[in-house]
């Protein structure tokens, strides 16, 4: 293909790059939230059943459990940080591979499945007044996170296609 110097395409590329920058920041923010949420739940609203189970553990076992949770949180946060920073870098015009885009698609698929499962589980949930609000808030946040990840994947794909059209020899 011959390189295309098309102002319309360039304008669209700038628009999608701007979108990628915003979405990258969003993914990082939601990654921080995903890491903080379990910690906040443990500290502020511990589940009675989980608490009862933890009470049966010895101190070393408890520390190991906390370590596993911490490592898991770090992995989730690091993944989202890498995803968000890669999207921002691409949005700022730097060259980036396709790995982060593929990872975004996979993350979007996983989040969609989990979200749909959560929706399917709703009828079985034991609703109290408090838990309705918690559930609703949780769904909204998780749904938003899912949408942001999906939008990021789509925007990354659009950027790569536009760059290809503008720069291919």
């Amino acid at each position: 293909m011959i390189p295309v110097a098309d102002p319309t395409l360039e304008k669209e590329l700038r628009r999608q790059q701007s979108t990628l920058r915003s979405l990258g920041s969003g993914v990082i923010a939601f990654g921080l939230w995903a890491a903080l949420k379990p910690l906040l739940i443990m500290l502020l609203a511990p589940d009675e059943d989980v608490g009862a189970s933890l009470a049966t553990l010895t101190v070393p076992e408890l520390l190991l459990a906390l370590l596993i949770v911490a490592v898991f949180m770090m992995i989730v946060m690091s993944f989202r940080l890498w995803l968000g920073l890669s999207a921002r870098a691409e949005g700022l015009g730097k060259r980036k591979g396709s790995l982060y885009m593929i990872a975004a698609y996979i993350a979007f698929a996983v989040q969609t499945v989990l979200f749909l499962l959560a929706l399917l589980y709703l009828p079985n949930h034991d609703f109290t007044e408090e838990s309705i609000l918690d559930m609703f808030a949780s769904l909204v946040v998780e749904g938003t996170s899912m949408c942001i990840t999906g939008e990021l994947a789509f925007a990354a794909r659009k950027v790569k296609r536009l760059k290809k059209r503008l720069g291919e020899v």
Binding site: P7, E10, K11, E12, R14, R15, S18
Partner: peptide, 10 residues
């Protein structure tokens, strides 16, 4: 440059 009102038009 890109002005804010320009809809990404340079």
């Amino acid at each position: 440059y890109l002005p804010a009102w320009g809809e990404y038009e340079e």
